[in-house]
Design a binder for these strands. Sequence first.
DNA 1: CATGAATGAGTTTTCATTCAT
DNA 2: TATGAATGAAAACTCATTCAT
Lengths: 200, 200, 200, 200
Amino acid sequence: MARVRVGDMRRRQLISATIDSIHDVGFSATTLQSISRHAGVSTGLVAHYFKDKDGLLEATLRSLASDLSAAIVEKLRQAVTPRDRLAAVVAGLLAPEQFEPRIARVWLAFWGQVTHAPKLKRVQNIYEKRLLANLRHAFKQVLPAEQAEEQAIALAALIDGLWLRAALSREPSNADQAQTLCLAFIDNVMERQRTSCSAA
Amino acid sequence: MARVRVGDMRRRQLISATIDSIHDVGFSATTLQSISRHAGVSTGLVAHYFKDKDGLLEATLRSLASDLSAAIVEKLRQAVTPRDRLAAVVAGLLAPEQFEPRIARVWLAFWGQVTHAPKLKRVQNIYEKRLLANLRHAFKQVLPAEQAEEQAIALAALIDGLWLRAALSREPSNADQAQTLCLAFIDNVMERQRTSCSAA
Amino acid sequence: MARVRVGDMRRRQLISATIDSIHDVGFSATTLQSISRHAGVSTGLVAHYFKDKDGLLEATLRSLASDLSAAIVEKLRQAVTPRDRLAAVVAGLLAPEQFEPRIARVWLAFWGQVTHAPKLKRVQNIYEKRLLANLRHAFKQVLPAEQAEEQAIALAALIDGLWLRAALSREPSNADQAQTLCLAFIDNVMERQRTSCSAA
Amino acid sequence: MARVRVGDMRRRQLISATIDSIHDVGFSATTLQSISRHAGVSTGLVAHYFKDKDGLLEATLRSLASDLSAAIVEKLRQAVTPRDRLAAVVAGLLAPEQFEPRIARVWLAFWGQVTHAPKLKRVQNIYEKRLLANLRHAFKQVLPAEQAEEQAIALAALIDGLWLRAALSREPSNADQAQTLCLAFIDNVMERQRTSCSAA
DNA sequence: CATGAATGAGTTTTCATTCAT
DNA sequence: TATGAATGAAAACTCATTCAT
């Protein structure tokens, strides 16, 4: 069991080094050497823990996705109303730590690869679906099914778009402003619903 | 002059082959060989027209950006009201041809590289600034300055986000639905403005 | 420590293979492949020990220079009189091993490059200065400063010239004859000095 | 006939450009492109006048050698005594124009190649033999055959050595000083001869 | 005559992977 | 476990040569 933990630590260390390397030099310039330099270990070690480079990359994306999921789940736990749930998802996705260049850039780099790497694509799909299901479910509690689907897509797009611009821009990004814009969007959608309901 | 055109044709041919290759095998698997195979020429020819691979990649991004700019400019020409202008930008950015995988995937691939390649970054910055200026200007005609800035960012994010999800998804994307969502956003912003104005 | 030695052995092996290759096919026809073929290793190994081809070439010149320096220093150790010292330098520079084509041709090949490769130039400069200093110092013990400088240059030129003609000629060269000519030059200079002194 | 002259001018122009290129970037970095850039013509032109690159290089060395020969022959014409003849050869070989880096470096660069390029070797051999024959012949008029041969070799070596050091050093070289050293050598040899004769 | 576009072989360099220690 | 030496294939890049115009 202690053994297992040592192995897990090494794995985490290598994943972290991979993120650092992608952040520093980009995806295509990231080599096993640049990773192992970041990790302070030898190149041969990767094979020991991840079979090959692709295995390490997949594990890295999986790690990013699961960290993000965990953060959202944590915030959802305290949510009561549908608006709470939507706000929780927004808060998770646009949390300051997701805006840090170290993370945002790496997500972006992976997205550029995802379309051509089936294994990465699969990881991304899971995250994607889960996110949309969360938003759709919350909207359905206050909107008719069709509109709920539509607004879920719109909100997801808004979130991704805000995050994308943050990742692309060089200025330290403003997570607060992004969240405010999303909450405004949510409130706006809901208010229109209330208005049209009461009008009918 | 005929000479110039022959050279320009070759340049375009190589750029097109680069786009094809990135679309087919992704950014990091795109090699000079994969490009020249697509173009039906020898690998050495790239040096003749673009100095090296980076030069070709930069020219490719520049070509994508200028095509997009031209499309927007064309649509803006017929716009009269601020709403027309916003709709024109949306129509340009979310035009069906921008949703074609051949284009969308390549944009995405470049975005993954942009943060680490200063020369690419510069190209992207220009496009980015111009876009935002367009939106800001249109919004300023109907909103107070501060809100205009904010909504310009939100709309840009919504556009990018919609486009991004389309690029990431494998299903043939719905350009119409994306545009509809954006127009709804625009109308919504404007209507709220009208309401609050008349209320005041 | 054993590790270090293994690495040093490989380095020496690659340097020796470089010398062999330059001797066999010349400087410009020497490729990493011709070198690694001589060494019986793969081409990739050069990067492991010398970063790149230039690094290997620089190390090779440095190795030639340091071997030569060591030989001279060894001979100087037993020298007592100024004439001994001059004879020792001559004996070192015009030693039979310096006349072997394997060494002589490679020196010549490097000299052809030295003027255009700052890193090589630096190596050559060090060797050059040290040599001249040795000769000057010995001459100063028997000649006035100005003449000593002059004769040091002349002797150095004579040595280099003799060696150069040997390197250029295809016949197995006569190290003995070359040394004899130099010693005659030295004795001649000294005798004139004695004569003019006693005359005065 | 006018045709021939135009061709000759082009040939000279290309040879001159080759010398310039070797001087500027060295032998191995000299390409047909660097040459044609220097000459202000297209790369394809070389084939027209010299068959291929090797042909141009050979013609260049031949041109250097014939210029040098012509200079020596010119100076020999006015020589009367043996000493005059030796001085003329020295004056030709160590003339200021041969000390100019543009020429000296290029000679040196060729020497580095000569041992591996039979065609170049042949050119160099001719020059070499002619030079030695000149010196030997002059010395034979004042020395016994064996000594004449020996001193001819020594003087040739001294000349080459002086020239070599000039080519390797970066400082603008002193042709005068070099000639003075050679003349001192000559006079010295001759004086010893006279002395020993009169003594006998 | 002269150009420069185009080729394709050859060279350097990079790098994931393997393996003996 | 961990290292880093070693490999070999694949990449980018260079360049002499050819050829249509």
